[in-house]
Amino acid sequence: MLSIKNLRASVEGKEILKGVNLEVKAGGIHAIMGPNGSGKSTLASVLAGNPNFEVTSGEVWLDGKNLLEMAAEDRAREGVFLAFQYPVEIPGVSNINFLRTAMNEIRTYRNLPAMEAKEFLKMVKEKQKLVEFDAALTNRSLNEGFSGGEKKRNEIFQLAMLDPKLAILDETDSGLDIDALRIVSNGVNKLRSDKNAFIIITHYQRLLDYIVPDFVHVLYNGQIAKTGGKELALELEEKGYDWLKEAAKEQELA
């Protein structure tokens, strides 16, 4: 589904991604872990098309389409979804109006008719229930007045509504208490299928107790330094990242 080849990207002239390679197949859940500053969030931003990051070389393909040539909105319409680490509050834009606009823009792109209001509201209700997100959304501005946990849950709810091919969760677990973590994870587990794929960026192993990954990748210094199964996450939890740094240094020297 997704193929990242030797991706390099920089922000304000500083290179952060230094040749990332990653293959993601439909139905797969990939966890990306790594120490602070290793480029995890940069990778998420670059995939979603954040204009603050400059891709200097490499390729990203989504089901045969060149993602890097697309504007952020077209990537979303093609089925890329980024659950933001810091969801933005937009006073004056209502949650419902925002979602409906997004939904219809995506449908128009796919040559589908706009959704009827009634049908849309029914879907909102269903998906809210599915991801256990009971915050009142009507007559409320986008993310305004939401707690940190509610904002993250709103991201998962949007994910449920927009039903993307590829979902990238950028530290969705940060700032969540154990209950919220369980709810968010349950949501993701209900949404996963053999048609979609998830990239889960996280610092901590604990999220992976709930969402079991097929692959764990360690991003270090802008490159994927190690790939393994779910047991790699446990190993990292136990040993930290220092042993990897040593290994990377040795590799460099060799």
């Binding site: 954040n50 952020a72 979303a76 319409r77 980024l82 979602l99 995506i106």
Partner: peptide, 15 residues
């Protein structure tokens, strides 16, 4: 606000 603009675009809403 560039962050707000990117957030909307990342949900498929055109410029």
């Amino acid at each position: 606000d560039e962050d707000a603009l990117f957030y909307l675009k990342a949900r498929g809403i055109g410029e």
